[in-house]
């Protein structure tokens, strides 16, 4: 690969199923590219240095802090943000559970919390309470909604596990 920048360079990435070609300088973070260039303002900028979790998105299926990823690194990669979770008007189980448990107070850390838990459940449909606690530990919440976020994570994990079991009847006999 050639040396690129420091001026704006083209970057092609897929965000929430849509492929975009952006023109951004190498110093632009993925977070700023999502918010400023694509208008996807779900991921939030709180600390901008990987100490809060509010900018969490999924990069090729893994939860990352988008403030610590450069947009230019995302060439050919797949990004999912909270805006991409809704399918045909239907919310993801983590989103449903957040509503049910009142897991969002001010709501500012919420998209990051949801993306972190969603990535966990994608990777591990049978996540345990401890898995959920460890995941939520990567996303601060200043309002202190933690007990409800963890409860929502458990509820969502139950839904995801049940769906996984329904999809894979061969190991359905083993129980949830």
């Amino acid at each position: 690969m050639e040396r690129r920048g420091p001026g704006p360079v083209p970057v092609r990435m897929t965000v929430n199923g849509v492929t975009y070609e952006l023109t951004v300088p190498p110093r632009r973070t993925l977070l700023d590219a999502l918010r400023e260039d694509l208008g996807l303002t779900g991921a939030k900028r709180v600390c901008d240095e990987g100490t809060c979790g509010a900018c969490t998105v999924s990069l090729d299926g893994q939860a990352v802090y988008s403030c610590l990823v450069l947009a230019v690194e995302c060439e050919g990669r797949t990004v999912e943000t909270v805006e991409g979770l809704i399918r045909d008007g239907e919310l993801h189980p983590v989103q449903e559970a957040f509503i049910e448990h009142d897991a969002a107070q001010c709501g500012f850390c919420t998209p990051g919390q949801i993306m972190a838990l969603k990535a966990l459940l994608d990777q591990n449909p049978r996540a345990s309470l401890e898995d959920i606690r460890q995941t939520v530990a990567g996303n601060l919440c200043r309002c202190g909604a933690y007990p409800k976020i963890i409860a929502a994570g458990l509820t969502a994990a139950g839904v995801v596990a049940a769906r996984a079991a329904a999809k894979a009847p061969e190991d359905g006999g083993a129980g949830a």
């Binding site: 690969m1 050639e2 040396r3 690129r4 920048g5 420091p6 001026g7 360079v9 300088p25 190498p26 110093r27 450069l70 230019v72 690194e73 060439e75």
Partner: peptide
């Protein structure tokens, strides 16, 4: 951040 160039090294 100050502007910088970026190279994705191939080796």
């Amino acid at each position: 951040m100050k502007p910088f160039a970026y190279t994705a090294a191939t080796s």
